[in-house]
Design a protein around this nucleic acid. Sequence first.
DNA 1: GATTGGCACTCTGAACGTCCGAGTGCCAAC
DNA 2: GTTGGCACTCGGACGTTCAGAGTGCCAATC
Lengths: 343, 343
Amino acid sequence: MVTERGLQVLRAIVQDYVETHEPVGSRSIVDRHSFGVSAATIRNDMALLEDEELITAPHTSSGRVPTDKGYRVFVNHLAQLRPLSSAQRSAIESFLGEPADLDDLMVRTVRVLTQLTGQVALAQYPSFARAHVTHVELVALAPNRLLIVLVTDAGGVSQRMAVLPDMIDETGLAALRARLAALITGQAISEASDRLQTLLAAEESPQDRVLRTLAGVVIDELSGFRQERLVMAGAATLARREQDFRGSIHPLLEAIEEQVTLLRLMSEMVTDEHGLAASIGTENAPFGLGEASIVASNYAAPSGTARVGVMGPTRMDYPSNLAAARAVARYLSRMLDEDEAGR
Amino acid sequence: MVTERGLQVLRAIVQDYVETHEPVGSRSIVDRHSFGVSAATIRNDMALLEDEELITAPHTSSGRVPTDKGYRVFVNHLAQLRPLSSAQRSAIESFLGEPADLDDLMVRTVRVLTQLTGQVALAQYPSFARAHVTHVELVALAPNRLLIVLVTDAGGVSQRMAVLPDMIDETGLAALRARLAALITGQAISEASDRLQTLLAAEESPQDRVLRTLAGVVIDELSGFRQERLVMAGAATLARREQDFRGSIHPLLEAIEEQVTLLRLMSEMVTDEHGLAASIGTENAPFGLGEASIVASNYAAPSGTARVGVMGPTRMDYPSNLAAARAVARYLSRMLDEDEAGR
DNA sequence: GATTGGCACTCTGAACGTCCGAGTGCCAAC
DNA sequence: GTTGGCACTCGGACGTTCAGAGTGCCAATC
């Protein structure tokens, strides 16, 4: 059975290993932390920790390194987030500044987070899944070309081009706009999409050709809203950490480029009661990221919660990264809330 | 003076070195290429090439490696682009398929290019600098919130939110729309921006407050069009090439994330008479990319030419990469032309 | 029973020497 | 101008040695 002091030893090992990047021995622990016991005693504790598979020795006689399980115990029971310095807080504040729009806000968010942590920063967009269509606008670019602009109450705007099968004049356009608006304005994304599907499935009448073409494009456009999106920054920081990833950062870069993997991973993380989550090392193996850890914090958007966090080596500074993610998430929530209130 | 055969030896060295990634010796040249002379003769030629600083020996007695200058001579005088295989051509064709819009087309372009070359692919957006504003649309989101949609004849669409100082009703909106449209529709981006600036500089009258607010936002939006943009793919391929970059791919990843550096670099490259360009190794040092090479090909967009290309290690397969960039550029030109014609 | 100092043992990594092969430069001969 | 021959150089692989760090275990101690 691991004792209370044993857990403190685990904490010391995690802290020192993250800091020095070298296996930590019993001697260096008594030197750096004031346990008030001898190295031999620490060795006994370490033997127990090893039995519990919380730490492991890379070689027969070298210091110990935390296992993924050890990091997990550390994060769940031992880590206490250190509040950010006031300099860091004001950095967040000034960085997030006065964003031009949602995209801008998200980009600034990941930039400040990568700056604070030195890791790759990730942020889910506020979910549009429960958003409602507030406006539909059709802009005639040519007699048979329309630009369809959709706006949602979650701050999302999307536009797409549609090539019509027939020419259309100004009055036809107005009629079309009115029909489309009547159909989907005020509807939830999913409901709007369903209604258009119904329209498409209905009996075809010749004069509906234009509307039907349009419906197809709008359905496609709506599906863009339903998709979760991710914004990232700091991929370049990975290059400095090559050796942390058993040689190759390829899976990480791949995931960053793919986006969809990371999106799923972030969605599936389980948060604690404070809205914080960590996914450690092999826990990410199903996603091909068995050597990486991700920590994230929920933030509140008007349309629901989403997450912001960082990805880095398993051997990362969890307390700092969690604290940074939480702080940025709070600012982000506040800004989205202000934005909502001002609408 | 380097002889004709000397140049052929340089070609052989570049080819073999790119293929094997190992310094090439006189012996292996006579083995792999049928020069019809002995290794000793090749050695003499190599000594001359070394005098000209076209090749260099990493160690006193190892094979030779091309210098950046050697690659330059190779690209300018010795490289003959191999046409793509029909499989590759059809890959481009099917990949580029039926793009939904300009963004989609650009993304597909870089994806196919990274697929063909295994390198990081880059593409400049068609320049909007000479584009004209074709449509302005104002969508009322709330009494004091407008969405401003701008469309250009180069396929670019942009939207932005404006918060007005006063409430505005439907008739006021129509008037505003008409005034704005009269001011900038049909104008070149730069001219439109100038006109709005003039408006802002003019004497303020109270009822113009809304228009002036709007003008500020539109100017900002127009400046987004004037900025060149870049789209990229294949950053993950860099991880496989770590050792090619003297240890760190950090500058490359940094540049990819920065975008602006690469944009300048691509803009400043000098193309040959076929619209092809290469920037090799130390030639990129001012941009912090002294160990990378970039090859690019012009493509024709309705609003002018822009470039598409790849970035990789100095030791890259120039003929293949140039051929791939050229092929993709041609398809891209064709698609943009068709799109234009159909408008 | 927990803790401690002592000690034998293990393993890594750096330093060093050796050796082989690849490749060169040079030269005399063709 | 080309060639074969030859001495020379250097890098990398390999094996050996050695010191240092750290462990596990044990008997002694609190």
